[in-house]
Every structure is written in structure tokens, then in C-alpha cells.
């Protein structure tokens, strides 16, 4: 892909890729590495992205890359999360940190649906699971978060 095209995608979707990666790797430093890797892959590879599907494509690439990373190294440093995440409102910070503590499978659904706004159908395609599985994971996540944070 041409450099200008990749830069345009980067300007538009770098935050999306960062948030999706953070949901998996739970480390701002590693998430930044993922962002760099994903966009450099577009430069290196002979990839054509269907117009209008760029965000979903980048999310899918990000998820696949993160899954490979996690298979290779199962340690997650979450200490740096608390130091590095800058959210203005304390309740936002509490919720975000609670989300980062969720089991990986439900955490990714929360990130993709609640924060990135993807539909259940889209998420089912990203994660190769059924739509009902997406719904169930989200329900579980919200149940855990409600218990932990004590609010709706």
C-alpha cells in the first residue's frame, strides 16, 4: 500500500488500533508497538483495503497480531497501565482499570462493543465466534463490572 494511503489511515484510525491492542495486551508500551507493527505491515505488504471497511480491517489485523503475541508471551504487565492511562474523571479511570482486569475473552468484547462501537455481528466475525457468544460474553462482562464497581 502506498505510504500516503497508510498515513491517511493512520491519522484516522491509530486510536482505534491502539484501544483494540490495549484491550488485548494491557500494556500501553506493547499496544504502541502493535500500532506501529500494524501500519508498517500495510506498507510492507501488497494489501488492498476495501473502501469503507478500513476500520474493521485494521481491527481484525490488530486482533490477529495481538493473539499471536499473547501466544508467544503470556506475561502481562498491568502495573504500567495505572500509571500511563490518563482519563480525566476518576470513575472513568476506575471503569477502565476494571475492564482491563476482566478475563481476556470478555474484555475484548467490551472494548470492541462498548468502546469501539462495533456490532455483535462485526465482533463475531473478528473473533470467529457466534453472535450469541458475543452477547453472552458481554453480559458476563457487565455482570462482573457491576459487582466490582457496584453501579449500573
Amino acid at each position: 500500500m502506498e505510504r500516503e494511503a497508510v498515513l491517511a489511515l493512520f491519522d484516522r484510525y491509530a486510536d482505534t488500533v491502539y484501544r483494540a491492542a490495549l484491550g488485548y495486551v494491557r500494556s500501553p508500551q506493547e499496544a504502541e508497538d502493535v500500532v506501529q507493527t500494524v501500519f508498517l505491515k500495510l506498507l510492507e505488504g501488497d494489501i488492498a483495503v476495501y473502501p469503507g471497511k478500513e476500520r474493521a480491517f485494521l481491527t481484525k489485523v490488530t486482533i490477529n497480531h495481538c493473539k499471536n503475541l499473547l501466544r508467544a508471551a503470556r506475561r502481562h504487565e498491568t502495573v504500567e497501565l495505572e500509571e500511563a492511562v490518563s482519563l480525566t474523571q476518576p470513575e472513568d479511570r476506575d471503569l477502565f482499570l476494571a475492564i482491563m482486569e476482566l478475563p481476556e475473552k470478555v474484555r475484548t468484547v467490551v472494548i470492541l462493543h462498548c468502546i469501539e462501537g462495533y456490532s455483535f455481528r462485526e465482533i463475531s466475525e473478528f473473533l470467529h465466534i457466534g453472535v450469541s457468544a458475543v452477547s453472552m460474553r458481554l453480559r458476563r462482562a457487565k455482570s462482573i463490572l457491576k459487582k466490582q464497581l457496584g453501579r449500573d
Binding site: R19, D92, F96
Partner: peptide, 27 residues
């Protein structure tokens, strides 16, 4: 909780310095 998710989505971004560094790398 929904309003909070929206604020998190709006505020949680790739840090500016990292963004500039990676963009420079791509460029």
C-alpha cells in the same frame, strides 16, 4: 456505565508523542 464508555472512547487515545513518533516512522 454507557456514558462512561463513551468518555473512555473519546479520551483513550494513542499518546501524542507516540503518535508523532510512529507517524514519522511510517513517513
Amino acid at each position: 456505565m454507557e456514558r462512561t464508555f463513551k468518555r473512555i472512547s473519546d479520551e483513550l487515545k494513542l499518546p501524542r508523542e507516540s503518535r508523532e513518533r510512529i507517524r514519522s516512522r511510517i513517513a
